[in-house]
Design a protein around this nucleic acid. Sequence first.
DNA 1: ACGTTTGCGCTTTAGC
DNA 2: GCTAAAGCGCAAACGT
Lengths: 80, 80, 80, 80
Amino acid sequence: MADGTVAADQLRLFIERIERLEEEKKGIADDIRDVYAESKSNGYDTKTMRAMVRLRKMEIHTRQEADALLETYRIALGLS
Amino acid sequence: MADGTVAADQLRLFIERIERLEEEKKGIADDIRDVYAESKSNGYDTKTMRAMVRLRKMEIHTRQEADALLETYRIALGLS
Amino acid sequence: MADGTVAADQLRLFIERIERLEEEKKGIADDIRDVYAESKSNGYDTKTMRAMVRLRKMEIHTRQEADALLETYRIALGLS
Amino acid sequence: MADGTVAADQLRLFIERIERLEEEKKGIADDIRDVYAESKSNGYDTKTMRAMVRLRKMEIHTRQEADALLETYRIALGLS
DNA sequence: ACGTTTGCGCTTTAGC
DNA sequence: GCTAAAGCGCAAACGT
């Protein structure tokens, strides 16, 4: 078997792994859509819910940055 | 327990389900990044690989659209 | 005349140019709507027409992507 | 010349008119991108400018609605 | 590391 | 009113 073929097979495998993962990602995205739809059928406003999710994510992110900063200080000061 | 509380609990559950799914989606996206990185370390060009994946997806999509259009024609013309 | 005023004038001009262009764009979009409406009054199915336009655009795009990918290969392989 | 051919020609003309208009629309959109780019190279923040354009559009829209309401009242009250 | 550019997701809008 | 598609904004990714 020539190297070219081996390389082609390896490349093909990488591509297929990526495509498989992208399908999974698509599936999760569809699940998220379904939850929003279910929420809507229960009387909740989708746009507002998306805003809530976005806001919570930002808050988590902000909190993590604050924690990282504290950790940096802790190490810099040689604290356990 | 008041209705308001029940509703709040239900909303919270929906939000948490969405956040859980978004974490999963993020995980898959990270996996995809890893595969591209692994491919790169095996000598493949990331940009080219992304183009290949994108092209394959587009071709599938174009084919599906073409099929749907033919079906539309078929129905419009009253063919079985 | 202070620099602040000059800057404000320049910014205002940029904003107005954008707004003018967006009006033009809106006008074109309205023209497109009109053509679809005229087509419909001539007995053509709007949905099918939109699908045709979309499909033709996708095919052109797919072709261009394929060409670009070939070019990428060519360069990667050091071919003239 | 058969009716089928005439119809096909007419349809083709409609499609081509639409495609021509969509190209024009694309051109305008590109021009808008250029103005934002030029603004950026002059030191203005693109994101902020987009927010300004959006806000002004909303205000114009709000103003128009208010005017329309006033006009409705005027007519309802038989005022000149 | 930064700035640019491209792809992806969301929002909004149009059609049924 | 709801579904689907087009347009827009953002964010990651590439190149410098």
